[in-house]
Design a binder for these strands. Structure first.
Lengths: 235, 235
DNA sequence: CGTGTGATTGACGCCTGTCAACGTCTGTGG
DNA sequence: CCACAGACGTTGACAGGCGTCAATCACACG
């Protein structure tokens, strides 16, 4: 049950220096503020689902969102996580296609919805905004290409090591030194592209090799350089 | 050794109805015609390489180009093919990053180079052009997400069947009914994400199951529906 | 005719997915 | 307070897909 929240509690959209909306003119900003709809979501809520039409883009103010595709036997493949400052749903919105992913809340979130016509209007009226969108897409496309190469060429072991490092880089540590994202073993598997059991086995192997510490779902990296060597980074 | 060719032999850029340049104004078109550089490439030529700076985008007038990333042990992972009407190198050009892929000529090609500043100028001055770029990127991003899910969840057998169907859909048949793209077994493997020997074994298996015909590198699909069933298509 | 590249086949073994059983924890309802 | 269900985590057994290595063949080319 998403709750609508006061617009002013979502002040992110245009103010942060790395916001996708940072190049809007003051007038455009005013329009944005009037039109956007800020919503509060709980863990497990779904923002949009595969094969549905999306009527705008979502800008994440707070929380973590899991973006995944449903594959064979309904097995999820996690494509990305979105957190503060990220936008989701823009691909389908801008291409006019149906959503090819599902966006599900992983950690309670505040998300702004911006209608598609407004986005299109800004793209056409403001070249800098268009460029920001394009650069945002470029980044994702580059990451996707990397992902393809890695998943195609690396072993599960290498990929898991790499995923742990990436999660650490993206989400940092909590106060206790554990990676600040809470994933089930199954979700880790769906990110790495393997079976849950394989993740469990490799995690305990990493643990007995003194590379990580485990405390329930919490993971702490204690030998980053060796994990990097295992992950076999390239390019 | 690329040869420069007469500009007028590359009339594609702005005239075809599905060209990325179809929404340029007559004035912009004039500028494009003056600035673009059309080049003729031979099989094996490289248009740009990973980790190099790209100074513009390339529009394919004729030929086939292989886009790949170099992974572990220099094993290539083919990300895509580009053919008439496609643009390549735009991701790095627009993001200002170094190229994350290499573009190599598979079939003799004619390619137009358009300098980055011109592209940026058009994006900023012409919202429709910006939207076309965005939609082009959206399409690729969607395909990349699909690719990730498939490579992560499907067996090599399923992926090979699917790749054959995709190649058939993208390149059609030659006069003799063979798929109109000429790939080595190794390239097929680099596309599927597997070992060369696995491709060879599965191809002969498909052949003895009467699903395909083989004549050197040429492949003919003779039981499409069964191949589709094997490929286990979803979404 | 030698050389080199690509295609093919066989042998071998490890990685990894699958199945099954069991343990752990949490929340719910009697 | 206890029993139970259900979700999640863990471990073991097992087989088979698939990668690797090596040898051989096919074919083009200088």
């Amino acid at each position: 049950m998403p709750d609508f929240i006061e617009p002013h509690t979502c002040a992110f959209c245009s103010q942060h220096s790395n916001s996708i909306f940072r190049h809007l003119t003051p007038e455009e900003n005013l329009i944005l503020e009037e039109s956007k709809i800020c919503t509060s979501y709980k863990k497990g809520d779904i923002i949009y689902s595969e094969n549905n039409k999306i009527k705008g883009i979502y800008c994440v103010n707070k929380g973590i969102i899991k973006i995944f595709k449903t594959g064979i036997d309904c097995k999820e493949q996690i494509i990305a996580f979105a957190k503060t400052g990220d936008i989701v749903g823009y691909r389908s919105t801008l291409s006019g296609e149906l959503a090819c992913t599902t966006a599900k809340i992983l950690e309670d979130a505040e998300v702004c919805f911006i209608p598609v016509d407004l986005i299109l209007r800004f793209i056409k009226s403001n070249g800098n905004f268009a460029m920001d969108i394009i650069q945002y897409m470029s980044k994702e496309l580059g990451e996707a290409n990397n992902f393809i190469t890695e998943i195609a060429q690396k072993t599960v072991r290498e990929r898991l090591a790499e995923v742990l490092i990436k999660l650490y880089n993206d989400f940092g540590n909590s106060s206790e030194g554990y990676i600040a994202i809470n994933l089930t073993r199954e979700e880790l598997a769906n990110l790495v592209g393997t079976a849950t059991e394989s993740v469990i086995r490799l995690l305990s192997e990493f643990k007995s090799d003194q590379l990580i510490e485990l405390k329930g779902r919490k993971i702490k990296l204690i030998n980053l350089s060796k994990l990097e060597r295992i992950s076999n980074v390239f390019g």
